[in-house]
C-alpha cells in the first residue's frame, strides 16, 4: 500500500468520523442530505460483498466494517432518531436519487470487467459512488448557513477520492498490468463533481468568510 492510498483512506475515515461526531454528539444533521447517506450505504453494501469471502488484510476488513457500520448507523440516526430528525431539512433534500441508482445499475450491466453478480454489484457501487454526492451538493446550495462540520465532512469526502487518483497513478507506474479504466474514470468524474465545492470551500477558508454555495 502506498502513501497516497493510506492518506486517501484516512481522509475518508476522517470525513465519516466528522459526520458521526456531528450527529452523535450534538444530535444534529443540519445541512446533511439523507439521500446521499442512503446512496453511500448502498455503495458500501454492494462494494463489500466480498468482506467474508476474500480476506485481503486485517486493515482492509476493519476499514470495510467501519464504513459499513458508520454509513448504516448515520442513515438509522437520520431516519429513526427523534432528536436528530428535528434538524433534518426534509423540504430541501428533494433530489430524486432513484434517478441515480437505475442508470448506474444499467451501466454496470453494460460495462464491467466480468459478468458475475459480485463484479457487476462492485461496478455498480463504483458508478454510484461517483454521483452519490449530488443530493448533498444540491442541498448545500439550498442551505443558507453551512456549519463548519458539514463543510469539513464534504471537503474530506471529496479529498479522499482525489488522493485515490494519485494512488492509481502511482500504481500504474510501479505495478505491471495495473489498469482499471472503470475505477479511474468514475473516480475522476467523482472528483470533478466536487470542483466547484472545493473552489468555494478553499476561498471561504482563505478569506475567512462563511461558506456559501451560489444557488
Amino acid at each position: 500500500m502506498n502513501a497516497f492510498r493510506l492518506a486517501g483512506d484516512m481522509t475518508h475515515l476522517i470525513s465519516v468520523l466528522v459526520l458521526l461526531l456531528k450527529i452523535h454528539t450534538i444530535k444534529s444533521c443540519a445541512g446533511i442530505s439523507l439521500k446521499t447517506q442512503e446512496l453511500y450505504a448502498l455503495v458500501f453494501a454492494t462494494r463489500y460483498l466480498d468482506i467474508f469471502t476474500d480476506f485481503i488484510s486485517l486493515y482492509n476488513t476493519v476499514m470495510k466494517l467501519i464504513f459499513l457500520g458508520s454509513s448504516f448507523s448515520i442513515v438509522w440516526y437520520m431516519r429513526r432518531h427523534k432528536l436528530v430528525q428535528r434538524s433534518y431539512d426534509k423540504d430541501h433534500d428533494t433530489f430524486r436519487h432513484q434517478l441515480l441508482v437505475l442508470p448506474c445499475l444499467i451501466l454496470a450491466l453494460l460495462i464491467h470487467e466480468q459478468f458475475t453478480f459480485k463484479e457487476v454489484m462492485w461496478t455498480f457501487s463504483i458508478y454510484l459512488e461517483a454521483v452519490a454526492i449530488l443530493p448533498q451538493l444540491v442541498l448545500l446550495q439550498r442551505t443558507r448557513n453551512i456549519d463548519n462540520l458539514t463543510g469539513q465532512y464534504v471537503f474530506f469526502l471529496g479529498a479522499y477520492r482525489s488522493l485515490y487518483i494519485l494512488n492509481w497513478i502511482y500504481r500504474y507506474f510501479t505495478e505491471p498490468h495495473y489498469v482499471h479504466w472503470i475505477t479511474w474514470i468514475s473516480g475522476l468524474v467523482q472528483t470533478l463533481l466536487y470542483a466547484d465545492f472545493f473552489y468555494y470551500y478553499i476561498s471561504s477558508w482563505k478569506n475567512n468568510v462563511k461558506l456559501t454555495l451560489p444557488a
Partner: peptide, 10 residues
C-alpha cells in the same frame, strides 16, 4: 494463495 489483487482497495 494468489489473492485477487485488483480488489485490494476500499
Amino acid at each position: 494463495r494468489y489473492v485477487y489483487r485488483s480488489k485490494d482497495e476500499l
